[in-house]
Design a protein around this nucleic acid. Structure first.
Lengths: 223, 223
DNA sequence: CGCGAGATTGAAACATGTTCTAATCCGACT
DNA sequence: AGTCGGATTAGAACATGTTTCAATCTCGCG
């Protein structure tokens, strides 16, 4: 068995990993991506520099791990209190309002996460996991249900779930449309976030751009 | 007068700048972002390392300059032969098909450009220029006209052009809707490209995701 | 032509991500 | 308890983006 990602780690190894991630997050919260100097992370988490690389492949890898934990937090918050609203449009806008708030509320940290997401090479698995989970949350908000917290995340399952677009039952087609909407809105949100991270515009503009997208797609139905 | 961006440079300074950009592009075409080692760029362009930093603020800055030249090429190609198609939907899909091809056809170079776009800090101006020009091209494709090649690009003009959303004439509202569609589709395309750059999916998937977005937005009208 | 300001050079220096190594530690098994 | 293999450590080493500096060059001007 080659390197198991997270499972099969002794308790104190898990603790070490946690300390590493926590230290990285603290530094990122204060000073963004560049402030996460791995020598500092190592010192703060009482770990040797070399040991960092036993747990994570790169600096981005650490931050992407934190990102996925962040998404978990978001999932739980949404499960506890799903976006309210009488229509898919309202719920999905509310969803992105809250998601944007959660991220942008910690601006340097958020910038660091986005930079890790986009400045990666061969970190496709983490990027895929993020996109998949966010798309699921969007879909849940669209239909007004709490997100399904029990679901596989491996790429294979994700690929298998999207079957060929031809020959699908009516229900399938509805679900497909929902996934399509979720994907498009997530793209819009993500790209707007990148613009925000680059300093192009502020939080309100991010939400507004997603709202515009949702309006274009869902507007024809009841708003 | 603080640092003039491009104008007011002696002829041989322009030549130097060109050599720098050309060298960076060559290296990026071969090996992507990491292959653009500034020491190599300096050597290839017969310029001292320190001189690079007189012309560009960072490695990303060089590549973003190349990106904007690339967009210029795209603009000219589109002006010469605008996307054909009887409907906005068909034209816009054709537009993104060609744009994706132009980028992904040189995969390592494209990845380097995307990484520069997203991994920047205080390079907002270039990012804004890119988004603005691409959105204009999308809008041109939507209405089936060649792009307007004579237009200011500075951020002030861009900000001024987007007036308050309330109180607008009917024509304004149409134009506004067009810009909204263009923006949303560009976001979708960009985010799909980031996914491609991360290794999530291939060129066909990029175009398909934009097509889905265009379908959701324009589908209700004639396809 | 000769001058002087600014541009360029070559090289060193610095910062930080990443890798490597020898020594040490730790925890499970006999 | 003793031993062994893998994990950890401290620290050096390496790669590359970025900065700095003194020396040199270039070019327009008097």
């Amino acid at each position: 068995m080659p390197a198991p990602p997270v499972a099969r780690l002794a308790a104190n190894q898990l603790r070490r990993m946690r300390r590493i991630v926590d230290a990285a997050v603290e530094l990122a919260e204060q000073g963004g991506f560049e402030a996460v100097r791995l020598r500092d992370v190592a010192e703060r988490s009482d770990v040797a520099l070399g040991t960092l690389y036993k747990y994570f492949r790169s600096k981005e890898d650490i931050l992407l791990f934190a990102l996925n934990e962040e998404v978990t937090r978001l999932e739980q918050a949404l499960a506890a209190r799903p976006p309210a609203g009488a229509t898919p449009y309202r719920r999905v806008v509310e969803f992105f309002r809250r998601s944007s708030r959660a991220l942008i509320g910690r601006a340097p940290f958020a910038r660091a996460l986005i930079r890790s997401l986009t400045g990666s090479e061969d970190l496709a698995v983490q990027v895929a996991a993020f996109q998949l989970r966010m798309a699921r949350l969007v879909a849940a908000a669209l239909r007004g249900e709490p997100p399904d917290l029990s679901a596989p995340l491996d790429a294979g399952a994700a690929a298998g779930r999207t079957r060929d677009r031809r020959d699908a039952s009516a229900g399938d087609r509805l679900e497909q449309r929902e996934r399509d909407i979720a994907q498009t809105l997530m793209h819009t949100w993500f790209s707007a976030l990148v613009g925000w991270a680059a300093g192009l515009h502020n939080e309100r503009a991010v939400v507004e751009q997603v709202r515009v997208g949702a309006d274009l797609i869902l507007g024809p139905e009841e708003r």
